[in-house]
Structure formats: structure tokens, C-alpha cells
């Protein structure tokens, strides 16, 4: 039986962007408030899972031709590399620092090396979640 999923697909197209935005917000909020890489990553992954649910794997794969295992690996690599980076400045492993520059218009803005670490966490979470979902769903 063919299931009519017009409503799901139409809603998903809008909702996915809302979820993605929320994910990015939570990720960035994590520096001072509740949130961060892990939670943000889970939210981002849930957006992708919604896509996989409402369309099928093939269609989504056409739009997002990534190997999510590699994304997880990239994320994990970023996490460890962010810690190892400190070694090159003769600091302890995992030492963090805050870099800031003065920009035109927006003024002084900075980025902490923790953000790199957290971005890695987020990528790893997205990669792992999607890999697991796909490996279970592949041969149903």
C-alpha cells in the first residue's frame, strides 16, 4: 500500500529549517548558557532524521551525498586535534584560549578554541546518529 505522505513532506520541508536554526542556536548558546556541541549536534541530527523519515533514503542521499561515517570521523578528529593544538604552543594538552579581533561594523568579536572543540563534538554526534539510523534502516 502506498502511504500518502504529502502532509508530512510539506511540513517537513519547513520544519527542517526551523530545527536546523534551533540546532545552530543551541550550539552557539553553549558557550555561556545551557547548550553546546552535544545537544546542538543531536538537534541537527534530528532534522536530518526527519528528512529521512519523510522522504526516502535515496532522495535525501541525492541532496546530501555525504558519507556520515566520515563526518563522524572528521568531528572526532577535530575534537582531538583541538586538544593537541595546544601542544604546538608549548601549553598543556587541552589548554583553551580566546582569540578576538576588531572587525569593521560589528566591533570586537572573538572565538574561543573551545568552539572548535565543540564544533567537532557536534559533527561527531551528527555523524554517529545518522550512521546508526541508516545502518538499522538500510535493509528493512
Amino acid at each position: 500500500m502506498k502511504i500518502n505522505d504529502v502532509i508530512l513532506q510539506t511540513v517537513a520541508k519547513v520544519v527542517v529549517f526551523i530545527i536546523l536554526t534551533l540546532g545552530v542556536y543551541i550550539f552557539l548558546a553553549g558557550h555561556h548558557n545551557p547548550g553546546g556541541g552535544f545537544v546542538g549536534g543531536l538537534v541537527l541530527a534530528s532534522a536530518l532524521v526527519l528528512l529521512y523519515l519523510s522522504f526516502d533514503i535515496k532522495t535525501v542521499h541525492k541532496g546530501l551525498p555525504f558519507d556520515f561515517k566520515l563526518i563522524a570521523a572528521l568531528g572526532a578528529f577535530t575534537v582531538v586535534a583541538a586538544g593537541v593544538g595546544a601542544l604546538f604552543f608549548n601549553e598543556s594538552f587541552l589548554t583553551q584560549t580566546f582569540l578576538s579581533w576588531t572587525w569593521p561594523i560589528v566591533g570586537k568579536m572573538g572565538v574561543s578554541t573551545v568552539t572548535i572543540f565543540e564544533a567537532g563534538v557536534a559533527l561527531a554526534v551528527v555523524g554517529v546518529v545518522i550512521t546508526i539510523i541508516l545502518s538499522i534502516s538500510e535493509d528493512v
Binding site: K69, L70, A72, A73, A76, F77, V80, A81, G83, V84, L87, S92, F93
Partner: peptide, 22 residues
């Protein structure tokens, strides 16, 4: 502080992750 101490753990970890790309 001696960063050497972490290397026996970090070397396998980092290279292990890198191997995913090959």
C-alpha cells in the same frame, strides 16, 4: 607539566580517527 605523558594515548587515538579517511 609534561605533554609527553599524553602521547601514548593521543597518538593511537588521532591516527585511528585519521584512518577512517583511507
Amino acid at each position: 607539566m609534561n605533554n609527553l605523558v599524553v602521547l601514548p594515548m593521543i597518538i593511537p587515538l588521532l591516527t585511528g580517527i585519521a584512518l577512517f579517511f583511507f
